[in-house]
Computed example of a mutant assay.
Amino acid sequence: MLGLIAWRLPQVAATLLILSLAAWFAIGLMPGDPVSLALTTDPRLTAADVARLTALYGLDQPLWTRWLSWAGGVLRGEFGYSRLFARPVVEVLLPALRSTLVLLGAALLLSAATGVALGALAALRPRWRVAVDTVAVLGQAAPVFWLAILAILLFAVTLGWLPAGGASDTGWPDEARFLLLPVTTLAVHGLAAYARHTASAMAEVLTQPFITAARARGAGGGRIAWRHAFPNAAVPVLAIAAVDVGALVSGALVTETVFARPGMGKLLFDAVMGNDYNLALLCLLLVAAVTMLATLLADLGQHALDPRLG
Rank of each mutant, 00 (worst) to 15 (best):
V249D: 01
G165R: 04
A26H: 06
G80L: 01
W172P: 03
L29P: 00
Q61F: 05
L94T: 13
L93P: 01
R125S: 11
A26P: 01
I27F: 06
V254A: 12
P10F: 07
A14L: 15
S20M: 09
L39F: 05
V35D: 05
A113K: 05
F230Q: 02
W24K: 03
R87D: 14
L238F: 14
D33R: 04
K266H: 12
A23P: 04
V249W: 01
S111P: 04
A6S: 15
R227Y: 09
P173C: 12
G139L: 05
A148Q: 03
V249I: 14
A117G: 04
A195D: 02
L75M: 15
P10R: 08
A71F: 13
L309A: 11
A48Y: 08
L53E: 08
P62M: 08
L118S: 00
V272E: 01
R196C: 06
L279M: 10
A298Y: 02
T291C: 08
L93C: 05
G171Q: 06
G3E: 11
T65A: 15
G171V: 03
L293A: 08
L84M: 13
W161D: 10
S20V: 05
R217C: 05
N278F: 02
V137C: 10
G166D: 03
A271S: 13
L279P: 04
T46P: 08
G310F: 07
L108F: 13
A106W: 03
A167R: 03
A148G: 12
A48D: 15
R52I: 11
F178L: 02
L121G: 03
L108C: 05
A22N: 04
R261H: 00
D49H: 09
P88F: 06
F269D: 09
R261T: 02
F145H: 06
L153M: 15
L154D: 11
A120Q: 00
R8V: 01
A131C: 10
G263F: 01
V137E: 10
S168N: 06
V132R: 01
A164G: 15
W128N: 04
L300Y: 04
D174S: 12
G80M: 02
A233V: 06
A136W: 00
G218E: 07
V135N: 01
S200N: 15
A280E: 01
H189C: 13
A304G: 12
S200V: 15
W146C: 11
V116M: 09
L206A: 11
P231E: 09
L16A: 07
R52K: 14
P143L: 11
A195W: 03
A201V: 05
R308H: 15
T291I: 10
S20C: 13
V188L: 15
M1D: 12
F25D: 06
T41M: 14
A233P: 00
A142D: 09
P62C: 08
V12E: 02
P88C: 10
W146M: 14
R76D: 13
A294F: 04
V116S: 02
L180G: 00
P34A: 12
M30N: 08
M1R: 13
G221E: 12
Q61R: 14
Y57V: 05
L150T: 12
G119Y: 02
L309Y: 11
M264Q: 02
D49G: 07
E175S: 14
F230I: 04
L159F: 15
V132I: 13
R66F: 06
A176W: 13
G263R: 00
A51F: 08
V89D: 00
P173W: 10
E78I: 05
A120F: 00
P31D: 09
P236I: 08
G301E: 05
P126F: 07
V183K: 02
L4V: 14
